[in-house]
Design a protein around this nucleic acid. Structure first.
Length: 276
DNA sequence: ATCCTATCCTGGCTGC
DNA sequence: TGCAGCCAGGATAGGA
């Protein structure tokens, strides 16, 4: 499932292929992909615009558009679970799961593929306004130990759903959350305001280290869905300590890894390393 | 304030 | 082999 490292990987690989390109035409194969907007309206908004910049915010791929030097809004792409965004030759056969296609200049085409149709590619006038509610970026300066300490104390929520809440912290998903909680010895149901300082420190360190290591390996391909824009699998799945390892021995203590549901999410942890 | 459930989707898996 | 039924999961909305 694309989380921060997978989205960051997509942005890095797509940037040289997209920035400076002009959108020549648009085709929408699944209307919900573009949100509530009418297809004709969407086309009017993007066709003729140029991609001025590509960046990541939380799990959004943000393509800033301009037209004659003036901003033309932005495309916010969210891959959700099965989305993939990639550029290829316009003549390459279109996969049957492609939901949106933007023709670029030079015979290239940007394709948004999404088997389960949860992903979105929205045109917005103001990207910042559209993403205003998101929490801080875990790899930014703002996300320090002190911030985390205070933020956790200010809430009384179970730690796992809290870390998954994009308004609290941007970019964490199910896989990396389980990995980080295991690394820092915190039970997924621990109440945020009752986690001791030492563990908060370890959690902060785990989040930064895990996300950085996963980005360095171009993300994780746990199932057949996630691929980089080059079509390659990620490399971080080999480093999972708990995710998808139910019944296998914990790398630290040998106890079998447990899987339970927390907030409707499959949650993997070690009962002896992550005490309540 | 926080939690819970349903919703959106469909390929792939399980069990018979 | 065939098929029904279930599962995964990010985000959000509405209700408790």
């Amino acid at each position: 499932m694309p989380e921060l490292p997978e989205v960051e990987t997509a942005v890095r690989l797509l940037r040289p292929q997209l920035v400076g390109r002009r959108i020549a035409s648009a085709r929408v194969f699944w209307p919900r992909t573009i949100g509530g907007q009418r297809t004709a309206e969407f086309e009017r908004a993007v066709v003729g615009a140029r991609v001025a910049g590509l960046r990541r915010r939380a799990k959004f791929i943000v393509a800033e558009l301009d037209r004659g030097g003036r901003s033309a809004g932005a495309l916010l792409v969210h891959l959700r679970m099965t989305g993939r965004l990639y550029v290829e030759a316009a003549r390459a056969p279109r996969d049957r799961f492609v939901k949106l296609e933007l023709a670029l200049d030079r015979g290239r085409v940007l394709r948004f593929l999404d088997v389960r149709k949860f992903g979105r590619c929205l045109h917005v006038a103001d990207a910042e306004a559209a993403m205003a509610e998101l929490g801080p970026e875990p790899l930014s300066e703002e996300f320090g130990v002190e911030w985390l300490q205070r933020a956790l104390r200010g809430r009384r929520r179970r730690i796992k759903p809290l870390l998954l809440d994009q308004q609290f912290l941007a970019g964490m998903g199910n896989i990396y959350t389980d990995e980080c909680l295991h690394q820092s010895g915190i039970h997924p149901l621990a109440r945020s305001d009752r986690i001791d300082g030492e563990r908060v420190k370890r959690l902060h360190k785990a989040i930064r280290a895990t996300l950085r290591a996963a980005i360095a390996r171009e993300g994780s391909s746990f199932d057949s869905f996630y691929r980089t824009p080059e079509g390659k699998a990620g490399g971080y799945q080999d480093r999972f300590r708990v995710y998808g390892r139910e019944g296998e021995p914990c790398g630290k203590c040998g106890e079998p890894i447990r899987r339970v549901l927390v907030g409707q999410r499959g949650t993997h942890f070690c009962r002896s390393c992550q005490k309540r």
